[in-house]
Design a binder for these strands. Structure first.
Lengths: 107, 107
DNA sequence: CAGTTATATAACTAACTTATTATATAACCG
DNA sequence: CGGTTATATAATAAGTTAGTTATATAACTG
């Protein structure tokens, strides 16, 4: 599975996006991440594994705890790929602008 | 399923990303999209349905053909969500810069 | 109109995902 | 040391996905 596969597929799950949103506020342990969800600890542990595998989060070992935080390079690769689409879409918008401009001129 | 669920989950498949990349070059019919892949036409038709459902592509009817193109608003919503992470990650980078700066001062 | 082309849909299968419960491991606390 | 806390792993059930083949539909073409 490519990194992009893993990253996009990790982001496809709302629980995982919520975890990332929580981590955007700062580091959190597994139990801290379990708390806000109506879901068991093993389920969250698995989501964390998926996020880690996708390179979206990092974990430290701190005694019996495993605090998680966002991976600094997380968004870069995704952005790079989206940039390819963005470029075209912007071009399309511009073309649309041209059309609209032409219509205005014709008025 | 939220739009973001659908969008990210559509992007998680490499065939679908390849289709989007192809459409970034311009409109294409279903058979034109089938051609470069080692996959049957029904399989591609399904991928197109997923992409359409996620709001990533649009289709016209043109006689017996159904040309596809990128949806202009495709990337916007995704970007909006990623922006949330980007913000934090930038902040983290800045904090790292601070640390590095501090280390340098101590030398 | 008959045949062909473009596309969609259905039925099915294999593989993967997500959640659960039960259990293991390992560090911490008194 | 013994109990508790934090986390991971395994087994399993349910649901979803992605592909296949076979077939339907509908528009073009001679």
């Amino acid at each position: 599975m490519s990194n992009l596969d893993a990253a996009f597929s990790a982001l496809a799950d709302p629980t995982r996006r919520a975890i990332l949103a929580r981590l955007a506020l700062g580091e959190a342990t597994v139990m801290e991440l379990v708390e806000p969800f109506e879901m068991t600890q093993p389920a969250i542990s698995r989501h964390l594994k998926v996020l880690e595998g996708a390179g979206l989060i990092l974990r430290r070992v701190e005694g019996t705890k495993r605090p998680c935080r966002l991976a600094p390079t997380a968004v870069a690769e995704i952005d790079e790929w989206l940039g390819m689409l963005r470029k075209t879409l912007t071009a399309n918008y511009n073309r649309l602008d041209d059309v609209l401009a032409a219509m205005k001129t014709e008025e």
